[in-house]
């Protein structure tokens, strides 16, 4: 595969984009999981699909628009969706999780209509749903690189605020943290990363790359920093194994990446069991 990567630009794009996503999706995923917002990632990914569908339809109907990159429209929808979820969460203060099914089904519903109108049930759509090794352009790769850099810088700069907000919201507000601003910034970053990850992992499996590596890391880590480090490590391992096997088996990388993450999760659970088993024995002796 190494020779192929050197030879083909599309493979370079997929691998580099994959590695960027493998870093940034679990990085935000840690905060998503500890704040119990896992389903928001799902809702946002489905809204991204609506954006893609809208883009496909415009491309088809408006002759002036040719070869439009649906990723940008997906990003715009994802960010707008994030803003709207926050609004809904405020309206239904006592039923905050209602925002998620509303956006998720609304996104899919509109998406299906738009895709049908665009006659879009074809291979292109398949690659948006489950990812593709061949569909990432150089331009997309650079966009993802810029987003990754921005997200990493923002997470570093707001690390302490994000930590306090995740650990104890009351304390954050007493400590003078502008919770609304930091949360808004966070949710917009999540929306951008979801739209970025879509091309490699696919819309239906983006949230898995944000949560599964974190689920594995949680089994093994003691500190928050360690959780972030291990999550990113597991994310990258999943991407590398997933991309290689997708290329070899000629299947969508979304499936192989997520399955690699599932295997890592199972290993981490066995590890925990094995370790606590050892401890129990040790105590008895």
């Amino acid at each position: 595969m190494i020779e192929a990567i050197v030879e083909y630009e599309f493979l370079q794009n997929a691998v580099i984009t994959g590695l960027l996503i493998g870093l940034v999706a679990p990085l935000l995923g840690v905060f998503i999981v500890v704040r119990r917002l896992s389903l928001i990632a799902d809702a946002l990914s489905h809204i991204t699909l609506t954006g893609i569908a809208a883009s496909l339809l415009i491309e088809k109907r408006v002759s002036a628009v040719d070869d439009w990159n649906p990723m940008y429209m997906g990003m715009a929808f994802s960010v707008l969706g994030a803003v709207f979820i926050e609004k809904l969460r405020k309206v239904y203060k006592h039923y905050e999780e209602l925002a998620i099914p509303i956006m998720l089904s609304g996104g899919i519903g509109l998406g299906v209509i738009l895709i049908s109108l665009a006659d879009g049930f074809n291979t292109d759509l398949f690659s948006y749903l489950f990812g593709s090794v061949t569909a990432v352009s150089r331009g997309n790769m650079w966009t993802v690189a810029v987003i990754t850099t921005l997200v990493v810088i923002i997470v570093l700069m707001f690390y302490k605020e994000l930590f306090v907000l995740s650990f104890d919201e009351d304390h954050a507000s007493i400590a003078g943290v502008n919770a609304r601003f930091v949360h808004f910034l966070f949710i917009v970053m999540v929306a951008l990363v979801i739209a970025s990850a879509m091309q490699v992992v696919g819309i239906l499996l983006v949230s898995a790359l944000m949560t599964l590596p974190v689920a594995s890391a949680l089994r093994m880590s003691v500190s928050f920093r360690q959780t972030i480090g291990l999550s990113v490590l597991f994310g990258e391992i999943s991407v590398v194994i997933g991309l290689i096997s997708a290329y070899q088996l000629d299947v969508p990388p979304g499936g192989t990446i997520v399955m690699a993450a599932v295997v890592l999760l199972m290993i981490s659970m066995l590890y925990k069991k094995f370790r606590s088993g050892l401890f129990e024995k040790g105590e008895k002796v």
Partner: peptide, 12 residues
């Protein structure tokens, strides 16, 4: 006040 499964050390 907090989620007791939160992965953080006393130090953090």
């Amino acid at each position: 006040s907090f989620n007791s499964g939160f992965p953080a050390t006393v130090y953090e």
